[in-house]
Amino acid sequence: MALLNYPSLYWLFLKNRIKILMEYRMNFLIGATSTIMIQGAGLLTVWVIMSQIPDLNGWTLPQVLLIYGLITLSKSINHMFADNLWTLGRDYVRTGAFDRFMVRPVDPLFHLLADRFCHDGIGNFLVGGVLVAIAAARLGIVWTPGVIVYFAVMVLSGGVIFIALNLMTCVSAFWIMDSVPVTRVVFEMHEFAKYPLSIYPRAIGLLLTWAIPFGFASYFPATRLMGLETPLWQAYGAPLVAAVLLAVALAVWRFGLRHYGSTGT
């Protein structure tokens, strides 16, 4: 299919997906709110604790919330648009549904992603958005066009970092079918990025910068937005990191597809 037609095809998939979701309105609401609940438990903890202490090793509550909000927003992009990567093994490879993608004249990865927009991510998106808005107001961040663009680019890059890591790990489904544990192990590292990296041992900071770079999805852009002194490569590195990671992930995906072509299931 011509590259030009992909956006409109995605739009068609999305429209029909929403139509289905609206049919199960109750599920839709519960799904979206349940993620808010889970986030709520963690956030309530942070709030309860931080209202009793002067600071978190030098960080104020709004500062922590900004970091937390940024990672939640990035995660929500992955959650909404690429959640199907989790189910590649269970719902597509194991059942043989992936064969269907292979006999259609569209890119199989596109088909996989377009197949299921995940509404649960909307809850995360809202939580992240509200957190960032509150934190920004408390920190006195002025939303100039420059800041807005910076913010949007960082969140999108963060989303791509999430998607690329999930893509890389979900490819294991072509070998072991049950790819969820592999994906989960890498995905789980984002939990670190909910708090300032400076509270962790140095090794973890390095890990989240150079190996599983969730630091670029929250901590680094957040310090820059707060007006703290941030090295340039940290403040602006996210798009580059995201691009490199995505390129690697796509190569891994193609490798996985080749394997699928030689073994089937």
Binding site: L12, N16, K19, I20, P105, H111
Partner: peptide, 14 residues
Amino acid sequence: DLALRESLTMVGRI
């Protein structure tokens, strides 16, 4: 979960 007409439209577009 989609009506056949919509399913066919999607396949047609693919």
